[in-house]
Amino acid sequence: MPWGYYAYVIGDDGHIQNRVEVHCDNDEEAKRCAEQLVDGHAIELWQEARKVATFQPKGHPPFQP
């Protein structure tokens, strides 16, 4: 049974704009899927309360509060 991962689309202001459910069997597969969602916004990949990875769009620095 695939694990429940969520990919959060992070806006330029650092707030969540959208959440995408990702069904994958392991972290590596989930990372590959989440990285494909990067399209001008950062993506944070989570499994429940565990942050798995962050993906930044090319040419954009990470959000700094």
Rank of each mutant, 00 (worst) to 15 (best):
M1W: 02
M1S: 11
M1D: 07
M1A: 10
P2A: 15
P2K: 14
P2Q: 13
P2M: 13
W3R: 13
W3Y: 10
W3P: 04
G4K: 14
G4Y: 15
G4I: 12
G4W: 11
Y5T: 02
A7G: 13
A7T: 12
Y8L: 12
Y8N: 01
V9D: 00
V9N: 00
V9Y: 01
I10A: 06
I10V: 15
D13G: 00
G14R: 07
H15A: 07
I16Q: 15
I16N: 14
Q17L: 14
Q17G: 14
Q17C: 11
Q17H: 09
N18F: 03
N18Q: 08
N18C: 00
R19G: 09
V20A: 06
V20I: 09
V20T: 01
E21S: 06
E21Q: 08
V22K: 00
V22H: 01
V22N: 01
H23L: 15
H23G: 12
H23W: 15
C24G: 05
D25N: 10
D25V: 11
N26W: 05
N26I: 02
N26C: 11
N26D: 14
N26Y: 06
D27L: 14
D27Y: 14
D27V: 14
E28A: 08
E28I: 00
E29I: 04
E29Y: 04
E29R: 03
A30V: 13
R32M: 10
R32A: 13
C33G: 07
C33M: 15
A34G: 09
A34N: 04
A34K: 03
A34H: 07
E35N: 11
E35M: 09
Q36N: 09
Q36E: 11
L37V: 12
L37Y: 13
L37H: 10
V38G: 03
V38F: 05
D39L: 00
D39Y: 01
G40R: 07
G40E: 07
H41D: 04
H41A: 03
A42Y: 01
A42I: 08
I43D: 03
I43A: 03
I43T: 05
L45M: 10
L45I: 13
W46E: 03
W46I: 01
W46N: 04
W46A: 02
W46S: 05
E48A: 12
E48P: 06
E48F: 13
A49W: 07
A49C: 01
A49M: 03
R50M: 09
K51F: 11
K51P: 02
K51C: 13
V52Y: 05
V52C: 09
V52W: 06
V52Q: 04
A53C: 06
A53N: 10
T54A: 00
T54V: 09
T54D: 00
F55G: 04
F55A: 07
F55L: 06
P57W: 02
K58L: 10
G59L: 10
H60T: 03
H60P: 00
H60G: 00
H60R: 06
P61R: 07
P62Y: 05
P62R: 05
P62E: 03
F63K: 01
F63V: 09
F63G: 02
F63P: 02
Q64K: 13
Q64W: 08
Q64A: 08
P65F: 06
P65H: 07
